[in-house]
């Protein structure tokens, strides 16, 4: 899923300063699963904003709405009758949400209420970890199912580097050295010799280095 973090309340309050009618817009996709932008979080943020308004004696026209997804036009369309009636729309979807809303409703002032951080999974309830960097050319099967692109700080294909110590990466004792994990896993699987393969420099054109990406499926396109 796409994982995000709430923006500080102070930053959101600054965004909506002087805006009378505000919509807090959630998304039932990834951000609901990572507990940052679903219906529940819409309620919490909208309530906090209403409290802030009340404290200053301002009218609390803070409304709440959660769309099925904010990355598909058909759901964005559900706002057609209302979007431009707000002075501010705070989208707490990933970075796609505020852009899709702003694109569909050119006159609307749309603000991002969360910071989109990474593509990852939940290690346990309340703990998420980055697992994919969307490099566009997946190779995890060569490394025992562990991604050296997303999980090695240097994205080394031929690791580990000299900064690996006691299973940890030199950048932080919190970060596992994925190359240590890869070697351990491949050894346990009896596949250690596969790591003798020397990988040439990765072609990053399928990643962000090739510019903004676009995918067209002729069989689905109308």
């Amino acid at each position: 899923m796409i994982v995000g973090d709430s923006k500080p309340l102070e930053e959101i309050l600054e965004m909506i300063e002087g805006k009378d009618r505000v919509l807090v817009l959630g998304c039932r996709g990834c951000v609901t699963v990572c507990n940052v932008g679903g219906e529940k979080e819409v309620g919490i943020l909208a309530t906090a904003l209403r409290i802030a308004r009340k404290m200053r004696g301002l009218p609390g026209h803070i409304e709440e709405r959660t769309l099925e997804r904010q990355c598909d036009p058909e759901y964005i369309e559900e706002l057609a009758d209302a979007a431009e009636g707000y002075d501010a729309i705070v989208s707490i979807a990933c970075g796609v949400g505020p852009q899709f809303v702003a694109e569909r409703f050119p006159a609307a002032r749309v603000y991002p209420g969360i910071n989109t951080t990474f593509i990852g999974g939940a290690l346990e309830h309340g703990v998420w970890s980055e697992r994919c960097q969307s490099c566009g050319n997946c190779l995890v099967h060569h490394f025992g199912g562990l991604c050296p692109i997303a999980r090695c700080s240097k994205s080394l294909m031929n690791g580990p580097c000299g900064g690996s110590a006691n299973k940890k990466c030199e950048i932080s004792p919190e970060v596992d050295c994925v190359w240590h994990l890869i070697v351990e896993k491949m050894e346990a699987m009896g596949r250690l010799e596969e790591l003798e393969r020397v990988w040439p420099v990765k072609n990053w054109i399928t990643s962000r280095d090739g510019g903004p990406r676009r995918r067209v499926r002729e069989d689905l396109k109308q």
């Binding site: 309620g43 919490i44 309530t47 906090a48 409290i51 009340k54």
Partner: peptide, 10 residues
């Protein structure tokens, strides 16, 4: 719930 607590303050 966090919301119960915040609503009380609201």
């Amino acid at each position: 719930d966090i919301l119960h607590l915040l609503k009380a303050f609201e």
